[in-house]
């Protein structure tokens, strides 16, 4: 049975088992490789996307449950094909080691900044808690979010 979903402001008709996790559809059917498969159990956050603007683990979201809600992936944050302010801040802070978690970090960070444009350090830490990084780039990730929040220019 075809299932219609809206991803990054485009409608798609998907032919797949309704229990298939949205993550698999995004990566395998729509070739959106921003969201990553980390644990597949809703534990690590590498698969984080926005569902109606809120950060959500796409690995535990069955296709059947998406409905008319709008999905945004890392790719959907681009502005005129260029990294948006937060994505650029991650680049400027070189906030990645292996980079596997970064798509999820950007998505969660973006949701934070939309809800709270100038969060305190402890607000950032709290909000980012569901997303894990194994390489230990947390300090740089926090700096990147902080940079996008305060709109600092590149460090000279």
């Amino acid at each position: 049975m075809p299932i219609a979903i809206n991803v990054n402001d485009k409608s798609h008709v998907i032919y797949a088992e309704p229990s298939t996790p949205l993550l698999y559809i995004l990566r395998n059917e729509l070739a959106l490789h921003g969201p990553r498969f980390g644990c597949g159990l809703g534990q690590c956050g590498a698969c984080t996307v926005h569902v109606d603007g809120r950060p959500t683990f796409s690995c535990i979201l069955p296709l059947a449950a998406v409905g008319e809600r709008k999905i945004t992936t890392l790719e959907g944050l681009l502005e005129d094909g260029k990294p948006n302010k937060l994505q650029q801040a991650f680049i400027d802070e070189q906030a990645a080691q292996c980079g596997y978690c970064i798509s999820g970090m950007v998505m969660r960070g973006q949701a934070l900044l939309r809800a709270n444009p100038s969060p305190t350090d402890s607000e950032i830490r709290n909000y980012m808690r569901p997303n894990l990084c194994r390489c230990g780039t947390h300090a740089a990730i926090l700096r990147a979010i902080k940079r996008a929040a305060t709109g600092q220019e590149k460090r000279s």
Binding site: E17, P18, S19, T20, P21, I60, L61, P62, L63, A64, A65
Partner: peptide, 10 residues
């Protein structure tokens, strides 16, 4: 069918 698929997927 929807809730059965949700249980199975989630």
């Amino acid at each position: 069918a929807e809730v059965a698929a949700i249980f199975s997927g989630a």
